[in-house]
């Protein structure tokens, strides 16, 4: 029954986001929600708000899960609410243009359903017991609750920060979710498994439209929502450490940006770009001392690459973090 539910959740969210994306593209074009693809010749205008289809995919997958269980499980309410709130914050940022600090502070709100869920249904949503290889359950108690808001805000912003090239967000996030999915199978965290299936389906349904050359951009609506969803899966499934490992490329990228920019700044607030476009889809690292260090800058520091080749290197890095997350889960079982 569980496998049937997982398969149904995966297929329904995949089909929903795949079918809805062309409508979202049409809607964004009509409304004028367009952004320039600065890495392409002529910098064409591309419809944004593609993340809406990921939200639809998550919603449909969650409803199908509830229908099959003939019950509304608390974890699914928490998962859906957190994802939708983060997506809403992304939409607000797109429409109003928030500062980096405001946006990050707002993403902390996306954690509220998780806290409320843990208080209302303590038997269903057990949080505050992270597990570590070699040790087992950690003794973090008070500090865990202090850090809890960042468990959603940090991955949300990390996924948002990596979304800079065609297809990077869905590819890297899919590998992260796959890592969590395999880990939840190994550790028997069935709620996390279902949430992973829902999110992975939504990401894979959306991916073909965002791959090079992108027909649609995800924008903050999708990237914040996906990051928040990954955070919720990690917390509810008590897969915090696996989640950190699975999100390693995104975390590396955010850490490099924060350490070189020294603050929470929006892309438009950073004067020097980390990469430069040489023309004909070729991207190079900005070698200026003042250029912020990013994962793209690090990858390109060996020489310029065409955009699809750069994205392929992101995929290699994400695949490596997927392997590491599975190894971490195995270590949690065998030690």
């Amino acid at each position: 029954m569980l496998l049937l539910k997982a398969a149904a959740a995966f297929v329904s969210s995949l089909a929903a986001s795949w079918l809805v994306t062309p409508k979202v593209i049409e809607y964004s074009r009509r409304k004028g929600y367009l952004g320039r693809d600065v890495h392409k010749p002529g910098q064409p205008l591309i419809p944004e708000m593609g993340g809406l289809s990921i939200l639809v995919g998550v919603a449909v997958g969650s409803v199908i899960c509830c229908l099959l269980a003939l019950n509304v499980e608390p974890w699914i309410v928490v998962f859906t609410c957190c994802t939708m709130i983060a997506g809403g914050i992304g939409a607000l940022d797109y429409l109003v243009t928030l500062t980096g600090v405001t946006k990050t502070a707002l993403t902390v709100i996306a954690c509220l359903p998780l806290i409320v869920g843990a208080v209302l249904w303590p038997k269903h949503i057990v949080i505050g017991r992270p597990e570590l290889p070699f040790i087992g359950t950690m003794r973090f108690t008070i500090i865990y609750w202090i850090l809890l808001p960042f468990a959603v805000a940090a991955p949300a912003n990390a996924v948002n920060m990596i979304d800079t090239f065609n297809g990077v967000m869905p590819i890297t996030s899919s590998f992260s979710v796959l890592g969590l999915l395999v880990a939840s199978l190994i550790l028997g965290r069935w709620e996390a498994l279902l949430m992973c299936c829902i999110l992975l389906g939504a990401l894979l349904g959306y991916m073909p439209y965002n791959l090079y050359p992108s027909k649609v951009f995800t924008s903050d609506v999708g990237s914040l929502a996906v990051g928040a969803a990954i955070g919720v899966i990690a917390v509810v499934g008590r897969l915090e450490i696996v989640g950190i490992v699975a999100l390693m490329p995104q975390i590396m990228n955010s850490f490099y940006i924060l350490s070189s920019v020294k603050g929470l700044l929006e892309r438009r607030q950073i004067r020097e770009r980390p990469t430069v476009v040489l023309g004909d889809n070729v991207v190079a690292a900005n070698r200026s001392e003042r250029a912020p260090l990013t994962l793209a800058n690090l990858i390109l520091s060996r020489g310029p690459l065409k955009e699809p080749e750069l994205v392929k290197r992101y995929a290699i890095l994400s695949f490596s973090s997927f392997i590491l997350s599975v190894v971490t889960a195995v270590l949690m079982v065998v030690t």
């Binding site: 490329p249 690090l298 290197r313 290699i316 890095l317 490596s320 590491l324």
Partner: peptide, 10 residues
């Protein structure tokens, strides 16, 4: 080409 970055990650 990515081996050194993967090494850092490891």
């Amino acid at each position: 080409e990515m081996a050194d970055i993967i090494g850092v990650m490891l």
